[in-house]
Simulated assay, not measured.
Amino acid sequence: MLPVHWMSRDEQEGLLYADMNFKGWSGVRTMRWGHAHPTWTFWALPFLTDLLFERYSVSFSRTFSGIRVQDENRQTKRVAKWGDFMYEDEDMLNVGLWRDGAVKEWCKFDLEWELYKQRFEVDVDMMHDTKWYPDGVPLVFLSMHNTKTFESIDWMLSWIARCHVLQPNLDACPRGAAAPPTCLEGQLEERELRLRPEQYTAAMCCCIQPRLENWIFWHGHWFSKREDVPGILPNVSKKRTCSLP
């Protein structure tokens, strides 16, 4: 399974990111474009092995006769040819899943790290598209993506870890939806607060409200357990099709 990508690559022309639409395969798409951050069990090994074998084989002969093992009781013979989707792993994983008729994908759990410190100011229709998730993709605050700025990431992970251990009283946090200025590393307010270590952690925990208690966000609603997230919300137009970890 792949987590939903932050862009669908299947958008209507003229809309945001439509210029990034995937055109390397013309078959039926069974779910939204997934990010190449796969999770799998041993049941997926035949799928992954066959995908790798397909790519390896066509790099020499451009065609090959292969066997795809779909389950322990059925095998499907097919002939594969070189396609533009074979240039990288993410393309091949998506096409392979569509080709097999897969419909299971994770909700977005590999989030940009800036989303962790936006407090309550998260767009209601985050990562939406017109076909698959018109009301936005459910976000799961479990892991981070694009963590290339080591100093900032280390700084943020340090106080998130402390917040989870200390569980400070957040009633004293500033009112409003926006994160306080102290949540921006390197800003004057943040540097001054560091001079008062006894207050620093408690104040920084306000930045990640309400993620300490409620780690799932969907269309303006925060949830503390995946079991509490309904298939559809009263104010959305389409049922949630992604799975929650």
Results as ranks from 00 to 15, higher is better:
residue 188 L to W: 08
residue 78 R to Q: 11
residue 2 L to C: 13
residue 88 E to T: 08
residue 200 Y to A: 08
residue 169 N to T: 04
residue 42 F to E: 14
residue 213 E to W: 04
residue 76 T to N: 08
residue 173 C to E: 01
residue 140 V to D: 08
residue 4 V to E: 11
residue 102 A to T: 04
residue 65 S to V: 11
residue 165 V to R: 10
residue 141 F to N: 00
residue 26 S to L: 05
residue 212 L to Q: 07
residue 47 F to T: 07
residue 106 W to I: 03
residue 20 M to I: 04
residue 159 W to E: 00
residue 169 N to H: 05
residue 26 S to H: 06
residue 221 H to Q: 15
residue 185 E to K: 13
residue 40 W to H: 07
residue 69 V to Q: 04
residue 2 L to R: 09
residue 93 L to V: 02
residue 87 Y to L: 14
residue 168 P to N: 04
residue 196 R to K: 12
residue 19 D to M: 06
residue 140 V to Y: 10
residue 227 E to T: 11
residue 151 E to D: 13
residue 157 L to R: 09
residue 185 E to W: 13
residue 191 R to F: 07
residue 39 T to W: 13
residue 99 R to H: 09
residue 179 A to S: 11
residue 103 V to D: 10
residue 105 E to G: 14
residue 84 D to P: 12
residue 177 A to W: 10
residue 174 P to F: 03
residue 223 F to N: 01
residue 123 D to L: 14
residue 38 P to I: 10
residue 84 D to H: 15
residue 5 H to A: 07
residue 35 H to W: 11
residue 10 D to M: 02
residue 150 F to P: 08
residue 223 F to S: 01
residue 172 A to T: 12
residue 4 V to R: 11
residue 88 E to K: 09
residue 220 G to S: 02
residue 142 L to V: 05
residue 27 G to S: 02
residue 117 K to S: 14
residue 169 N to M: 03
residue 144 M to L: 13
residue 243 S to A: 09
residue 27 G to D: 03
residue 64 F to Q: 07
residue 216 I to N: 00
residue 63 T to H: 12
residue 92 M to C: 04
residue 137 V to D: 02
residue 130 T to H: 15
residue 120 F to K: 02
residue 194 R to C: 05
residue 133 Y to D: 14
residue 22 F to Q: 03
residue 128 H to L: 05
residue 154 D to A: 14
residue 90 E to I: 11
residue 244 L to I: 08
residue 47 F to E: 05
residue 198 E to L: 08
residue 11 E to H: 03
residue 72 E to H: 04
residue 139 L to R: 00
residue 70 Q to C: 10
residue 74 R to F: 05
residue 77 K to F: 15
